[in-house]
Simulated assay, not measured.
Amino acid sequence: MRLRAVIFDVDGTLVDSQLDILAAMSRAFEAEGLRAPRRESVLGIVGLSLDVAIPMLAPESDAQACSRMVQGYKDAYAEMRRAQGADVSSPMYSGAREALMRLQVQDDILIGVATGKSRRGLDKLIEAHELEGIFVSRQVADDHPSKPNPSMLFQAMRELGVEAGDCVMIGDTSFDMEMARAAGMRFIGVTWGYHDTARLADSDIVIDDFAQLDAALETIWSESLV
């Protein structure tokens, strides 16, 4: 049996966490006496690790201030998650759970995630949404350079025992797309996330709904056999 892997981004792809992301970033900046970045700017860096994203949003701030903002963001995000529950603060997109279930029952497909979240944040999210046992590989910001560095995907392939030609990355940002390309993987872009669709122009396929995922994967799998 030929094993294949489907690796998902999380924020903006499986769950919509933008309200907490925006609020946590605002708190982190305000604690430094800075004006919060615009919504478009914050969503534009979602997917990057915080130690890369915050200096981009605050180019005038020194390393110490950026470090404080990174921790301030983490603290604020964790506080909101505790107050609401991760299932409320980061709800799954329509059709996401069903798509994961359809993939899980296929013996030749392994499912993974590659996310800019911390391990703690991802674990809390998986627990809240009752997704334990779904993701065979979990790649997080704690263990890798920021996207679009392909380190996460190379490690996922090693763990899953699958070659790049048998893997597909699914995400909503250009960082996901560039990471997949750097790892030699095919890429499916989704339009419901945080980057404008124009930034996903180099995707193999772009989908507008999780109901289209199965057909998109089948198209990619069939092309890989030609």
Rank of each mutant, 00 (worst) to 15 (best):
M1S: 14
A5Q: 12
V6W: 12
V6Y: 08
I7E: 02
F8N: 09
D9K: 13
D9S: 08
D9E: 05
D9N: 06
D9I: 05
G12V: 08
V15W: 04
V15R: 07
V15C: 04
D16E: 07
D16T: 00
Q18I: 02
A23G: 02
R27E: 02
R27I: 01
E30C: 00
A31D: 09
G33Y: 02
G33R: 02
L34E: 15
L34M: 15
R38Y: 04
R39L: 03
E40W: 01
S41M: 02
V42A: 06
G44I: 10
V46Q: 08
G47M: 14
G47Y: 03
L48Q: 11
S49F: 00
A53C: 09
A53W: 03
I54N: 09
I54M: 12
L57Q: 04
A58L: 04
D62R: 06
A63Q: 11
Q64V: 01
A65I: 07
R68T: 04
M69S: 10
V70C: 13
Q71A: 15
G72H: 06
G72P: 03
Y73G: 01
Y77P: 08
M80A: 11
Q84H: 06
G85Y: 05
A86G: 07
A86N: 01
A86P: 08
V88M: 01
S90A: 14
P91I: 00
Y93W: 12
S94I: 08
S94C: 00
S94N: 00
G95C: 06
E98F: 00
A99E: 07
A99V: 09
L100S: 11
R102Y: 06
L103Q: 10
Q104S: 15
V105Q: 11
Q106N: 15
I109Q: 13
I109V: 15
V113M: 06
V113D: 10
G116Q: 11
K117F: 04
R120S: 02
D123L: 03
I126R: 09
E127V: 04
A128G: 08
A128D: 04
L131S: 00
L131Y: 01
G133D: 05
V140G: 05
A141H: 06
A141L: 05
H144K: 07
S146I: 01
K147A: 06
K147I: 03
N149P: 00
S151R: 12
M152N: 05
L153C: 09
Q155L: 10
A156F: 05
A156C: 07
M157Y: 04
M157W: 08
M157F: 06
R158D: 05
E163V: 07
E163Y: 03
A164C: 07
A164K: 00
D166S: 12
M169Q: 11
I170P: 13
G171D: 07
D172C: 03
T173D: 07
F175W: 13
M177R: 15
M179Q: 10
A180F: 10
A180D: 13
A180K: 14
R181N: 09
G184E: 03
R186C: 14
F187E: 13
F187W: 02
I188C: 08
V190Q: 05
V190E: 14
W192Y: 12
D196M: 12
A198H: 12
L200G: 09
A201Q: 11
A201V: 12
D204F: 08
D204R: 10
I207R: 13
I207S: 13
I207Y: 02
I207F: 05
D209Y: 11
D209K: 03
A216C: 07
L217P: 15
E218K: 08
I220W: 00
E223M: 15
S224N: 12
